[in-house]
Amino acid sequence: METHSKATVAYAMVIDLDKCVGCGTCNVACAIENNVSVPPSEALENRGLTWMRTQRVDNGKAWPDHRTVTVPIPCQHCEHAPCIHVCPVTAVQLDESTGIIGQIPTRCMGCRYCMAACPYHARYFNWFDPTWPEGLQDTLNPDVAPRMRGVAEKCNFCHGRLDRARELAAAEGRPADEPVHYTPACAEACPHGAITFGNRLEEGGPIAALEKKPEAFLLLEALGTAPKVTYLSREPWIRRIGLSRLDRVRGHGDGPEGA
């Protein structure tokens, strides 16, 4: 029987945009860890599979006042996820014991309703048959099942790594309800330490502290989706990218206009 309690673990991520340089290492680490296939070259930006997508955002000004920030956007693992209740086949599930929104590719029938529901565009569809160049299957990660064409997929906070960590904890004889610590591939690979991952319910833990910082903001907080991915920046204009477009133009939110 499952013995975990509901209230002790909620995995969350904090991404420091002042450290992110847009190198794409997280994107590639994610794809390698999670066996994300590479569609044929005719797959342009909107047909790809990038569970961790890094988006360039600028302040809308001309040189020399132009400023750019790169924003890595994984699935936000919303507490009030818009994608769960829409799925007709129960292929999207919230794991109450971890807060992770899981996607079951073998159950997904590919209706893409969840993709229409997600305001963060964090869900991807296998438009193509996922194939690997000959031999490349030998570099796949056995902890993550490859998907098939015609199903949706997305970031699951490296669930394969969580399973490994749980196996390790069990092998060490730790109780099953004790929260396990693990690091997703993107957080491990980020060369600049921009990604912090952990249990936000851990008192005195790094996530709880970072989430409380005045630099912290969420993407589209007003929608009420309550994402578990928090962003940090000291720059007021960067903090405003989390608002809807109009708010940003009008300079709502904190800080002076157009910093």
């Binding site: 769960i84 209740h85 829409v86 799925c87 007709p88 086949v89 129960t90 292929a91 159950r107 209706c111 309703y113």
Partner: peptide
């Protein structure tokens, strides 16, 4: 695998 919460 019907999800009774889904409009679909």
């Amino acid at each position: 695998h019907a999800n009774v919460h889904s409009m679909l």
